[in-house]
């Protein structure tokens, strides 16, 4: 085993006109692991993937994939990468099998090897029956699977998955997750971008949270959750008007600032785990005359990580971007 990262990015900068899409992005991904890039639309995830996949030249910094510089050794880098973007990169008018054959041959496989691998992948991804049909007759889930098969045909060591499950229904998403897990078991290094926190949580061994074109937090999902305070107390107040009083009373328990109370009188307080926590919280509220309808204590989620780090929720950012 070597310590050389499969993917290494140092100080990547990319400008689109006056907009700085990447602002000093650093990444190091160990071989054979799944690495999640998490961030709202416009955070720079796709730009980062495009630079690493040799599609864009960075304006600053440099990046290597399996030791090959993505700018000066792009040809070598392209031999070891696979790319599955947000939109199925397929020829609509070709059959599923012809698409795989074409990508295989363009990946320098012999015609025979491309044909054999195409048939294996079609079988593996449950597309054998549809193999002879034009791709434009495929469903969204079938397209994604074929697209992924195309990225895999020449056995890439590093696979970039840019929002692989955006727009898929739950069963198609579960199938993609299974494939991702199998690929990692095979030894492939995966860089996965996603807006779905649960997806990053489920699949990625390490996560980088990206905002404004740089990494604002990095670590294993558990570390990230711990870093923003281990637990959350979620309260539903009998009278929403009590929210400010309650927030003040609970300030001593809070590990970070309490976010403004919700309209329905719900209040969420980041706290450190402690014995008897719920009891103490209720006593403190009782002391200031606030009555509580419901109380729950839960472990921080990646949603909380995101909210704490970026100051906005992932979904809100997504809406704004639209």
């Amino acid at each position: 085993m070597t310590d050389t990262p499969a993917i290494l990015a140092e100080g990547l900068i990319k400008n689109y006109g006056k907009i700085r899409a990447l602002n000093g992005l650093d990444l190091a991904v160990a071989p054979g692991t799944v690495y999640g890039l998490l961030g709202p639309n416009g955070a720079g995830k796709t730009t980062a993937v495009r630079v690493l996949a040799t599609l864009l030249w960075p304006d600053g910094g440099h990046a290597r994939v399996m030791g090959h510089d993505v700018v000066t050794q792009a040809a070598a880098a392209r031999r070891v990468i696979g790319l599955t973007g947000q939109y199925a990169a397929l020829d609509e008018y070709l059959t599923g099998r012809s698409n795989l054959l074409m990508i295989g041959q363009l990946s320098r496989l012999t015609t025979r090897a491309a044909a054999r691998r195409a048939d294996e992948l079609l079988d593996r991804f449950g597309l054998t029956d549809a193999a002879g049909r034009a791709v434009k007759t495929y469903s969204g889930g079938m397209r994604r699977r074929l697209d992924l098969a195309a990225s895999l045909i020449a056995h890439p060591s590093v696979l970039f998955l840019d929002e692989p499950t955006t727009g898929l229904d739950p069963s198609a998403r579960a199938l993609m997750w299974d494939i991702v897990r199998q690929l990692v078991a095979d030894g492939t290094t995966l860089l996965l971008t996603t807006q779905y926190l649960d997806e990053a949580d489920q699949l990625a061994g390490r996560i980088a949270v990206i905002d404004g074109g740089k990494v604002i937090a990095e670590g294993a999902p558990a570390e990230l959750k711990a870093s923003v305070g281990g637990q959350r107390v979620v309260l539903e107040l009998a009278d929403p008007e009590d929210a400010l009083v309650a927030a003040k009373a609970l300030a001593p328990f809070a590990t970070t600032e309490i976010s403004p109370p919700g309209a329905q009188g719900s209040l969420e307080v980041p706290v450190a785990a402690a014995d008897g926590l719920a009891t103490q919280v209720l006593r403190a509220l009782d002391a200031v005359g606030v009555s509580v309808n419901d109380i729950a204590v839960r472990t921080a989620s990646l949603d909380d990580v995101f909210l704490t780090l970026t100051g906005h929720k992932a979904e809100e950012a997504e809406e704004e971007a639209k």
């Binding site: 041959q105 320098r108 012999t110 090897a113 691998r117 593996r124 095979d186």
Partner: peptide
């Protein structure tokens, strides 16, 4: 899912041969 490439699965050739082969594959498309 996608086994490593075995010997003989990759085309070895000159840059010109590669260009002609790529052009042919894409023209067929």
């Amino acid at each position: 899912i996608a086994p490593p490439l075995a010997e003989g699965e990759l085309v070895t050739g000159t840059r010109l041969g590669q260009l002609l082969s790529d052009v042919w594959v894409l023209t067929k498309r």
